[in-house]
Simulated assay, not measured.
Amino acid sequence: MKLMPDRHVEVLEIEGMTCDHCVKSVREALAGVSNAVVRSVEIGRAEVDAGPEATREQLVAAVEGAGFDVVGGTSEAAPE
């Protein structure tokens, strides 16, 4: 998938998710971050296409605000 300029992909490894309700909560929390597009959310993992204004720290804070712990993941810069 080709990203828009200045965008990056954030993959978050998340603990505490056990059901579809958890998935919905995380998806809604991430969707509330300005300039972030949720690619996918499943139990234990979320992937977000984020613009420069949507930092990893903001995404982590959104997930933690929903009651879950981010325990790892990766950041990938958009291809040049």
Rank of each mutant, 00 (worst) to 15 (best):
M1D: 11
M1F: 06
K2I: 11
M4F: 09
M4A: 15
D6F: 14
D6N: 15
D6L: 14
D6Y: 13
R7H: 15
H8K: 15
H8C: 08
H8E: 09
V9L: 14
E10A: 15
V11E: 14
V11P: 00
V11Q: 09
L12P: 00
L12W: 02
L12H: 05
L12A: 06
I14H: 05
G16K: 05
G16L: 08
T18A: 14
T18E: 13
C19M: 07
C19S: 11
C19L: 10
D20P: 00
D20Y: 07
H21C: 06
H21R: 12
H21W: 09
H21Q: 10
V23I: 14
K24T: 11
K24G: 04
S25E: 14
S25Y: 04
V26K: 01
V26A: 01
R27W: 08
R27L: 07
E28A: 13
E28C: 04
L30V: 01
L30Q: 00
L30G: 01
L30F: 02
L30K: 01
A31K: 12
G32D: 10
V33N: 03
V33K: 01
V33I: 12
S34P: 10
S34M: 11
N35K: 12
A36R: 06
V37I: 06
V38W: 01
V38P: 00
R39G: 07
R39T: 05
R39Q: 10
S40L: 13
S40P: 00
S40T: 08
E42I: 13
E42K: 13
E42V: 15
I43T: 11
R45E: 09
R45A: 01
A46I: 05
A46Y: 00
E47V: 15
V48I: 15
V48P: 01
V48F: 07
D49Q: 00
A50C: 06
A50E: 01
G51I: 00
P52F: 02
E53I: 01
E53D: 14
A54S: 09
A54Y: 03
T55K: 03
R56Q: 10
R56G: 13
R56T: 12
R56N: 08
R56P: 07
E57M: 07
E57P: 00
Q58T: 00
Q58H: 12
Q58P: 00
L59F: 04
L59W: 06
A62G: 09
A66I: 11
G67M: 08
G67P: 05
F68N: 01
V70R: 05
V71W: 02
G72P: 00
G72R: 01
G73R: 01
G73H: 01
G73Q: 04
G73A: 08
G73F: 06
G73T: 02
T74N: 08
S75I: 08
S75R: 10
E76N: 02
A77Q: 11
A77E: 13
A78L: 09
A78Y: 03
P79T: 03
E80Y: 11
E80Q: 12
E80A: 15
E80I: 06
